[in-house]
Design a binder for these strands. Sequence first.
DNA 1: GGAGTGATACTCGGATATCTGGTGTCCGAGTTTTCGCGG
DNA 2: CCGCGAAAACTCGGACACCAGATATCCGAGTATCACTCC
Lengths: 168, 168
Amino acid sequence: MRRLSEGVEHALHCVTLLGSLPDGALLPARAMAEFHGISETYLLKQLQALAGAGVVVSVSGPRGGYRLAKPAGETTFLDVLTAIDGPGPSFRCTEIRQRGPGAEADPCAYKAPCMIRRRMLQAEKAWRDSLADFTVADVIAEYRADAHPSLKASAREWLAPKIRMADA
Amino acid sequence: MRRLSEGVEHALHCVTLLGSLPDGALLPARAMAEFHGISETYLLKQLQALAGAGVVVSVSGPRGGYRLAKPAGETTFLDVLTAIDGPGPSFRCTEIRQRGPGAEADPCAYKAPCMIRRRMLQAEKAWRDSLADFTVADVIAEYRADAHPSLKASAREWLAPKIRMADA
DNA sequence: GGAGTGATACTCGGATATCTGGTGTCCGAGTTTTCGCGG
DNA sequence: CCGCGAAAACTCGGACACCAGATATCCGAGTATCACTCC
């Protein structure tokens, strides 16, 4: 498969970050960009796509920011990938078997689907199924179990002043 | 995942075509391009990659052309994909977790691999495993069983004069 | 002192440049065939 | 008629333009905050 967009990595890390915050907490894009050392303006583009796909929700104005739209346990890697790279399949069959000398044949002779297309989509389904099994909560749990304690503490400390709690 | 290269489709169809020829038969790139109604010069680029990866072998000069390097039953979709799109993984972890405020932390704190990277590579492995299960022979067998008889006959007839048999 | 009101500051959202990599093309290297010439 | 040799034709191989999509950026819309004024 072609090289995967770098925005996917940004989106996955940011979604994981959002999922590790307390319930109802908001985090602005600037904080996420600084935390990961990436471009803020470009990250906005990805967050915009995530918001449009219903993975995160955005709140405008001061005290605004982003938060997960659903609990971390219900947000899968596939949701994020679909939001960033689009819902369509990566392999697109252009039916080249029908071009060239085969073009004059009866169109109904091509009733059967292209075998190659079928196989490629089947492989892609395996990939999607695997991604659908991974939730953001899984990554967070693994992080909390394995990450170095001082690392977790410093991250928590750095993030604390940037977090905005909902009015609730 | 990003849109898959269109050359992949060309390569897969051409490899299938080569696999359906009699043993030792050669077919020039021009014939394959005309058969599929695609650009000959661009197809050469893909065939070059396939030859470099050892999927097909090329023979120069008149009466030259391409043939499969291994039997169709041992040539998998994964071989073709790897040859065209490169062997590297599609998801590349740039370790953004180590940038930003986490940069000052002890490097040994990052001994554990990035969880997100691990999951993405795992999903990619599922995709590769699925592709490795599909051989060119499978597609050909399915084609011979399901394709319209007149279609098979016309293709055979069109290809016949372009096929070059090895000296054997 | 409290409420209203306007300005302000901060946030996200969409439209706009730039640049890498896929797409498409060209000319050169190599090999077999073939035609011509000489024996 | 047969053998030799040079030229030609056809093939693949690598290097060169072109273009779409990802990357990176900027300006505009919306909203809560804050300060100031008035009651």
